[in-house]
Amino acid sequence: MLQTLTKARTDRVPSLNSLRKSLLSISPEEATFARRGFQCDDAQTQQQLERVGHTFLQGYHSAIAYDDSNLLLTQLNTVSPEWRGFAFEGAAMGLALLDGLTPWKGKRVERFLGEAGANHTYMVHVGVGWAIARLPWLRDEYLAKLDPLLSWLAIDGYGFHQGYFYGRDFVTGIAIPKRLSGYAGNVFDQGLGRSIWFVNGADLTRIPQTLENFPPVRRADLWSGIGLACTYAGGVDSDGIAALKIAAGEYQPELAQGAAFAAKTRLRARNLTAHTQMACQVLWGMSAEAAAEITDIALQDLPKSSPAKLKGKLGDMLPAYEIWRRRIQAQF
């Protein structure tokens, strides 16, 4: 009798996993420019940016498929180092969704951050933001579990998600996100800026035009996101980055700050790339290592803050995350 029950439980596991994958699966087509309606005039750039999306989905589906953290890590580490951060970002989305949908088996993200995802902590926090976009009623619960400083990156990830999947509303239509107030709106725009790099296919003419359509009060954060995306994801050569720097005009400090964030993210994960190094040389006039060090120095004596509660006005108190960003911009 015991053998029969054990066999029944074992036979039921694949079907439950199959059901989970079936319900949560995202088609690879969703990461294509054709499906998203993104514009790109350069085939190589389009291939580069589409690969970002496909690698993200590879990590996402791995997290959905593997309950065992060691098996998940094995799958993520099959991705080449240049692209691996995107896989970890996708895995974080998958784990966060599972935490939200099966709370009795929660703490997947927390365990991931404490173990396999530690070196990719920035990308993991951003990936949680994708889950927030899908399960917005769990936003505050998610944020309360994350690092008090880096939890703002989840709001950044939320902004990227909305721009990537709903660009007609948030990029073209310049919609303001609901249920966000105070400084959270600024961080949302930083993620939205990253998505504009993809929406406009890294086109150095369309991007400044797109940002000019936004109210001036939103442009600084959008340019920060552009700086992070062009430095981390790549897609253009050094002449393109130089042209972007000129186009940024008064927002060059924000553009450079985004680039420094990208450099730090890659160096912590030990997956520094030639295009990240190149972008830092053009935007900062220094190496990616030196730009990343600026972000570390700016963290010294930083006050603590958490976006767990996002309602109410910002007032005169700047969150630690914004103080961090401004210190970096001041070094430009």
Rank of each mutant, 00 (worst) to 15 (best):
D221V: 01
A63S: 12
F170Q: 01
I132D: 00
A291L: 07
Q329W: 03
G85Y: 03
D11A: 15
F198D: 08
F160Q: 03
R12Y: 12
V124E: 00
Q3M: 06
C280I: 01
L113A: 02
E115W: 06
D99C: 10
A154S: 14
A131W: 02
W152N: 06
L180Y: 09
G90E: 03
R20V: 10
A154C: 07
L149I: 09
L95Q: 01
V126F: 12
A116E: 15
M123Q: 10
T121P: 00
S25Q: 10
A154T: 08
G159K: 03
L299E: 13
L5S: 12
R270A: 15
P103Y: 09
T45G: 05
A175Q: 13
A248S: 11
L135E: 04
W104N: 08
Y321K: 00
A43Q: 12
R12N: 11
G240M: 06
S22W: 09
L101I: 14
G185D: 09
A220V: 03
A308R: 12
R108S: 09
T78G: 00
A260I: 12
D156C: 03
T78W: 01
V124Y: 01
Q162H: 13
R218P: 06
A308H: 06
E212M: 14
V187S: 08
L153Y: 02
G167K: 04
A229M: 00
D301R: 15
F214Q: 11
I207S: 03
T172R: 15
S18D: 10
K21I: 12
E50P: 04
K105L: 13
A259M: 09
D11K: 15
K264S: 14
G100Q: 05
N119A: 11
F88R: 04
S22A: 14
P177V: 04
R325C: 11
L222V: 05
I26F: 11
P81N: 04
A290C: 10
R218I: 08
C40H: 02
Y142P: 03
K245H: 07
G234I: 02
K309S: 07
A175H: 13
D189S: 07
Y142C: 11
P303W: 09
F165A: 10
Q209L: 14
L302E: 11
L228V: 01
C280G: 05
T45L: 09
A292F: 04
L113G: 06
A269T: 01
A247K: 05
L73E: 15
I246S: 13
R35P: 00
G59E: 02
R35W: 14
S306W: 10
G59M: 05
H61R: 07
A292R: 03
W284T: 05
V199F: 14
I64C: 04
E254P: 04
K107T: 13
V282R: 02
R218L: 08
A220P: 11
A31Y: 02
N186G: 09
